[in-house]
């Protein structure tokens, strides 16, 4: 065998882990982009079990006792951070959370210095959110432990994608073949991207509905149908996912006003009538009532799955923490 160690690798290392017999052949969970359908199904199946467990009085299974989970959030978040904390605690992890106000980033420390510091504390899982696309990947290259992306810039928010998929699968029975509409600020949304990759991988038909200013260039090349009119996009839809509209978008000349946005792209009962009768309405939260979604729709228990999504969030995050730490626990399977 030729063992010439000095020969440089001809191409940069591919961004894919080597094939193995593992059901989750990755060290980190950085995005949905590089997950195959089997892996996604494995994550969803595992999360399904935790949904049932979370509905019992005794919600904790301390399978991860003794392991340390650090939640490192460089961007404001309450629900995702809390969801990860609860998920970790229910698995018996020691969870520590660090939010942006108390971080040393403000003192000028670089991300890689932060990684080195955290590495020295020997965490077993690091959950991270950052305002820059690709920042979590950069940090993961220097971390010895598993890293979960809790949202990076506009790029990916994989656990949100998984919890949305789990919600759809449980309510509709399957993802394959469903017509799923994502509407709102697609351009600045990591939730939209993770959902597009995931739903496409699982065989759904994905449609995007947004004003042209909120759609990024060449988004149609990601395998989605693009609409600008709500009634056209919603026609025959099984699921509609509304995205949060950031109020700052008025300043960048993306939109004239919230009032006009609501008139054309806000989800009202009238517009929703174009979709199927049993359409499922979703929103990653926090909602702007009367901006992207009418209150009566958000509160319609027959259609809205918004609170279900939050519930699924904890289960999905427990599944991710469980799966990513299995190698530390002797690889036992649940």
């Amino acid at each position: 065998m030729n063992t010439q160690s000095t020969t440089p690798h001809p191409y940069p290392r591919a961004d894919v882990d080597p094939p193995s017999g593992s059901l989750f052949p990755h060290k980190h969970l950085l995005g949905i982009w590089n997950l195959d359908p089997t892996t996604i199904k494995f994550l969803l199946d595992t999360a399904d079990k935790y949904v049932d467990q979370n509905r019992q009085a005794r919600k904790n299974t301390p399978i991860c006792a003794g392991l340390t989970q650090i939640n490192l959030f460089f961007e404001n978040s309450t629900r995702t951070l809390m969801s990860f904390e609860i998920a970790g605690k229910r698995l018996g992890m020691d969870t520590v959370s660090m939010a942006t106000s108390s971080s040393s980033i403000k003192k000028g420390e670089t991300l890689l210095d932060t990684a080195a510091t955290l590495n020295a504390m020997h965490p077993d899982v690091l959950v991270m959110r950052h305002a820059d696309s690709g920042a979590v990947k950069l940090l993961s290259e220097k971390m010895e432990c598993a890293v979960i992306n809790a949202g990076d810039g506009r790029a990916e928010h994989p656990t949100q994608g998984l919890l949305d998929a789990l919600t759809i699968r449980r309510r509709k029975g399957k993802i394959h073949g469903q017509t799923i509409v994502i509407s709102g600020d697609i351009a600045h949304s990591r939730v939209a991207r993770s959902n597009i990759y995931l739903l496409n991988a699982m065989g759904a038909r994905v449609r995007l509905v947004a004003p042209p200013t909120l759609l990024p260039k060449d988004i149609d090349q990601l395998g989605v149908e693009v609409f600008h009119r709500m009634d056209e996009g919603l026609k025959g839809a099984d699921v509609v996912m509304m995205l949060r509209l950031q109020q700052e978008r008025m300043k960048g000349a993306f939109l004239p006003s919230l009032r006009e946005y609501y008139q054309y792209w806000g989800l009202t009962r009238e517009k929703l009538a174009c979709a199927k009768d049993d359409v499922l309405v979703m929103h990653p939260g926090p909602m702007n009532r009367g901006v992207e979604i009418a209150s009566d729709i958000a509160d319609d228990i027959n259609r809205s799955a918004i609170e279900k999504q939050v519930e699924m969030g904890v289960a999905v995050r427990m599944a991710c923490l469980d799966i990513l730490t299995r190698n530390l626990r002797g690889g036992e399977m649940q």
Binding site: S133, G134, P216, K217, I219, L222
Partner: peptide
């Protein structure tokens, strides 16, 4: 373009 859209840049 497509790459920047996908990478969220």
């Amino acid at each position: 373009g497509e790459t920047a859209t996908r990478l969220g840049l």
